[in-house]
Design a protein around this nucleic acid. Sequence first.
RNA 1: CAAGUAAACCAGAUGAUCGCGGGCAUACGCCUGAGGAAAGUCCGAGCACCACAGAGCAGGAUGCCGGGUAACGCCCGGUGAAGGUGACUUCAAGGAAAGUGCAACAGAAAGCAGACCGCCUGUACGCAGGUAAGGAUGAAACGGCGAGGUAAGAGCUCACCAGCGGCCCGGGUAACCGGCCGGCUAUGUAAACCCCAUUCGGUGCAAGACCAAAAGCGGCGACAAAAGGCAGCUGCUCGCUGCCUGCCAGAUGGUAGGUCGCUAAAGUCUGCCGGUGACGGCAGAAUCAGAUAGAUGAUCAUUUAGACAGAACUCGGCUUACAGGUUUAGUUGCAUU
RNA 2: AGGGGUAUAGCCAAGUCGGUAAGGCACCAGAUUUUGAUUCUGGCAUUUCGUAGGUUCGAGUCCUGCUACCCCUG
Length: 115
Amino acid sequence: MFSSLKSKTDFDHVYEKGKIFGNRNFTLRYVKNGKDANRLGIVVSKKVSNRAVHRNRIRRQIREAYRSTENAVKQGYDLIITAKPSCLGEDYSVLSRSLNHLFYKQDLLNRNQKK
RNA sequence: CAAGUAAACCAGAUGAUCGCGGGCAUACGCCUGAGGAAAGUCCGAGCACCACAGAGCAGGAUGCCGGGUAACGCCCGGUGAAGGUGACUUCAAGGAAAGUGCAACAGAAAGCAGACCGCCUGUACGCAGGUAAGGAUGAAACGGCGAGGUAAGAGCUCACCAGCGGCCCGGGUAACCGGCCGGCUAUGUAAACCCCAUUCGGUGCAAGACCAAAAGCGGCGACAAAAGGCAGCUGCUCGCUGCCUGCCAGAUGGUAGGUCGCUAAAGUCUGCCGGUGACGGCAGAAUCAGAUAGAUGAUCAUUUAGACAGAACUCGGCUUACAGGUUUAGUUGCAUU
RNA sequence: AGGGGUAUAGCCAAGUCGGUAAGGCACCAGAUUUUGAUUCUGGCAUUUCGUAGGUUCGAGUCCUGCUACCCCUG
């Protein structure tokens, strides 16, 4: 189980102070939060799709992808994952690999997992 | 067999593993968890708060008749009109004889009478009178068609049709239908203003109710000499009173936050009864979603491969989107018996 | 959750009370010029005003449903 970013001030803090990095499907922002655990925020805007069903599905897939790799991710960060329109219609396996790639590039994975 | 019509229904299923919301449980764990449209927010209600003596004006909505309903602009059953060979479908379907407006172009004339070409009679050949059959315009020209009639014509007369009216007759709760009689004309538009009838207070669960941290603020009350200052009684001391500052403790409003509202309901399913039907009545059954940045996902296997689409206070409708499929009841055509 | 507005040529747009859809820029053709710019003249909305229906003799305009976009309140 992981906690999530909730208030607007939390989001604003990450948007202002965080590092930004992205690939084809996602934009990742992260900043140290001084705690033991990570907090995750997921953003799927109406730019991606006007259909609530599509946005919900992408959000759930991101959540699932993060959950399955959480043990390998370094702790103590606030993360925001923003979906891009290219996520629409992609398979879960593609999204999952794409998210892993982001964590790897930003050196957020634990050492033993990196190898 | 083909084509077409109407109505009802399903909305992927099953299993395994990992995860999420809610409930129960000490715990292992068990149970449960999006839709027919959850959508658009177009109507109607419940519920909550605010406003409000009563009545009216203005404004909005609705508009054949009867019924259903908590209510409706919804539904059902009829009537009328239009379309279809038919099953059947569609219709904002009151009033134009209360008043006002509009009817471009064309046309002689566009709404209340009149007469361009005609036709007939008379004629002094300038025209005067009669007429509306025919022509031409237009979406629409003061009933249509036939016969009689006439100088030519005309509801002038007659039959049929259409329309209008009636203290009329019959049927129907009614809309209306059928008949009889009458006179012989009344353009269209109310989805133009309008008239008539019915109806409507406003805002919406971020409604609203309760608990309420820290810091600060506003006003209230009380205590005390534990402090000081100023003023007054009084020139001084004591004492008393008022104001200001400070301190102590209290209660109140209220922000973050939390709890409730919040899901058991005009609900769903099954059976019986009443009703043509919408629907109603009775009996029974079920641990029947309740989140709060907001729960349903991932992987694998089999299969007929699957659309449109995701609850946020709750219901009843309407509208719109929708793959594939199932069932029932009518219709038309062809073939065969 | 609640409320309001817009849609007319490639672009900006006018269009009242229903009766042949203004205007500007751009574009096309022609004239002027050796050529180009400027200037002048003419053309440019397929029955068509976001879309599907309805009322009407007739709809950009009136009525109803829908679509897209924009804005406001909390």
